[in-house]
Design a protein around this nucleic acid. Structure first.
Ligand code: SF4
Ligand code: SF4
Lengths: 134, 134
DNA sequence: GAATATAGGACTGGTAGGGTCGGATATTAT
DNA sequence: ATAATATCCGACCCTACCAGTCCTATATTC
């Protein structure tokens, strides 16, 4: 269906929220979940992934939370997707998994033409940053 | 995940096949299924949808089959997707289903920004025709 | 050491996508 | 006529994936 996953949407909402506050400001998951009515446990996982991916910095313990680790203008949406969904936004699975991913690989006539589409997509998601969704 | 559905891929493969033959040439589903090793029953459904959508013309009975109903250069990929998947390639479900589609609708902060992305996507899929995948 | 935050594994439930089956209808050839 | 071959179309299964939940461990502050 070509839709962004909910996780990515929640992640973007959270990142946008942080990007609007003065840089260095600490935000907790609970705070975000309350503000936007997002499922707390799920959002927590997303934030953890973003932390592992180096997009946000985590601070444990009381008075802990997350801060942005990159400037919003440097933070590409493509990266956020790759971190949260464990894969780049691909138009066909064979691009990620190779010949093993699809039994049609060798006599597929649309694989190469779709490459053009893919490249255009890459540009689209790479040029869009968190700064732009403010 | 942002991937094209298998149905759409099969449809595009079929359409490409037809587009390469002299116009008016009749092609059967069985022929296509054999040539590209596609699941016959599934492909049949896809062809039926394309017929209902006016992309191909169907001829019943012995010596029947399908012919292209439009010039390949006029046949936009966006249309093929909409016909086969019953929806345009949308980046967020609220764009198709409106406020009812997502409980976050009214306090979602990324809906409007994603609109920009959506418009760019539309252009991408609208400008690509079946002619281009030959 | 109580309170509160992240970290992370395990699990559940719903749904949509890919694929299959069976039968109806239309057309042609013998 | 009747057999053969094609589209048509509804119903069904099945599996993978996604959103969401629960529970416990660990780190930090006060
Ligand atoms: S090989 Fe062809 S059908 Fe298979 S995933 Fe790639 S593009 Fe799609
Ligand atoms: S989260 Fe926002 S953008 Fe995504 S579907 Fe809901 S309202 Fe639309």
């Amino acid at each position: 269906m070509l839709q962004l996953s909910k996780k990515v949407e929640y992640g973007l909402i959270a990142l946008r929220h942080m990007a609007m506050k003065p840089s260095g400001n600490v935000v907790t998951t609970k705070e975000l979940a309350n503000e936007y009515d997002l499922p707390y446990e799920l959002l927590a996982k997303i934030m953890q992934k973003l932390a592992r991916g180096g997009v946000v910095r985590s601070l444990q313990g009381v008075k802990g939370g997350y801060t942005l680790a990159q400037r919003p203008s440097d933070l590409k949406v493509a990266l956020v997707i790759r971190i949260i969904d464990d894969s780049k936004p691909m138009v066909a699975e064979c691009y990620t998994e190779g010949p093993e991913g699809c039994y049609l690989f060798y006599n597929c006539t649309i694989r190469r033409p779709l490459g053009k589409l893919q490249r255009n997509l890459n540009v689209l998601f790479d040029q869009m940053t968190v700064q732009e969704i403010i």
